[in-house]
Computed example of a mutant assay.
Amino acid sequence: MRLVLYGPSAYRFWIHAVRAPRPGPLSDERVLADAAPTTRAMAYLRQALPFLTAPVHLLTARDSRRLGADAIVHRSSRAYPDGSFLQAGNGIYVPCPALTAAQVAGGVDDLLLARALCLLLGTGAVAPDERYGHRRRDAPANRESLASYLAACPGVPGGNRVGRLLPHLVEGVASPAEADLALALCLPYHLGGYHLRHPVANHPIALSPQGRAIAGQPVAVVDLCWPEHGLIVEYDSDLTHLNPEQHARDASRRAALAHDGYHVMTITREHLYGPRTLDPVAQTVARLDGARLRPRSPRWPERHAALRRLPRGYDLADEAWE
């Protein structure tokens, strides 16, 4: 008996995963042949992966008994290439990040899907018992691996929507706020972004000897960076920067970066989610790139406002996956 996670439940697994699971003995559609969840198997799943919220979404190749409100079972008879499913535990399988992304596309709009994709490509996993906290990890996927899988699995539902968004995603963000900031700056105009060139997320900068003395550290890792312009954009949230010592360390680090010739722009919750605007950052990046901001879409203000209203944190909104 196997249990195969699907869609929102698979996504929830990936945003909690600090280490990526490895392929099991089977990694194609044969994984689904014996995937018929039972009440007993569901109890085991809740114990093995307690962070999964109800209803748990599962995938199988054949009709399965109803399990009540605690589970939703999805059926698929299509062929999947090797590497589509990874073993997340004893008898528990999860779709690879690319297949998870395609499944998630069936239940959310483009903006929430773009956020989910950024977090699947990100270096932050949910910290236990924290809504906004995160733990560092190696990103489980990148744009190239997602594109490669979708090319190997043509016609998979949701794949086209994922493929259209891939060029606009910033890899390596470490938190939902960084994802929101990167999306606001880089998504195309018709999705409410400023359509700017991609920064490097979580970029390590080796400080000069004087910079090291100021910061008290040899390397500064910055949220978003355009290295060729010496421009850094940092997100400063009082949800994560609560104590004076952290504020002092951040101030010293930014002073060191300024000493070494970098221009540091600080973004707060008010810029990203509140009444203030990201226009100064967007205008600075555009000016340095020799470009102009030209949101031709008449719906840009509406879409930009929707982008700023995305639910905070890692989880998807309560959408319906049929």
Rank of each mutant, 00 (worst) to 15 (best):
Y80M: 06
Y80K: 10
P25M: 04
D180A: 12
V18P: 00
A182V: 02
N243K: 09
L278S: 15
G107F: 03
D318R: 15
A36T: 11
L310T: 05
G106I: 01
L183F: 08
T284W: 13
D238Q: 14
E29K: 11
A114C: 12
Q217P: 02
A141N: 09
I232H: 11
R30S: 12
L310F: 10
L239F: 12
N202E: 09
Y44C: 00
T266K: 12
R65P: 08
A17H: 10
A101Q: 09
I72G: 07
D70P: 01
A320P: 10
A79D: 13
P176E: 02
P209L: 01
V126W: 01
A43I: 02
P154V: 01
A258I: 11
D250Y: 02
V156A: 09
S9L: 10
P23E: 03
P244R: 00
A139Y: 10
S145H: 06
L183D: 04
A258E: 13
H198M: 02
L257K: 04
A69D: 06
R12I: 00
P128H: 13
R253G: 07
P311V: 14
A179K: 05
A98K: 14
G24I: 03
L59A: 03
G122A: 05
G230Q: 02
D82V: 07
R269L: 03
G89M: 12
R308D: 07
D236W: 05
L119H: 12
L99W: 14
T39P: 05
G124I: 04
A102Y: 09
G107H: 13
R309K: 15
E245K: 00
R62S: 14
Q87S: 14
L242T: 02
V126M: 14
P176S: 08
L117D: 05
R131W: 07
G211T: 10
R46I: 05
A317R: 05
V31K: 04
G274C: 13
R75S: 05
L166Y: 05
V162C: 00
M42I: 13
D138K: 11
G230E: 07
R269Y: 04
D28L: 08
R164E: 06
G68H: 13
G313V: 04
A220N: 08
P25Y: 09
V222H: 03
E302M: 14
L196H: 11
T38F: 11
G163C: 03
R294M: 14
L288Y: 15
I232P: 06
G91E: 00
H198W: 06
A139E: 05
D223I: 08
H168G: 01
E228Q: 14
A206V: 03
T53M: 10
D250M: 00
R161W: 05
S208K: 06
L58G: 11
G216K: 01
S27G: 11
L181Y: 08
L272N: 00
L26F: 12
L181G: 03
L99M: 15
R197P: 03
P298W: 10
G172R: 00
L119T: 09
W300C: 04
V126C: 14
D82K: 15
L310G: 06
H247F: 04
Q246P: 01
L231F: 09
G192V: 07
R212F: 05
L293M: 06
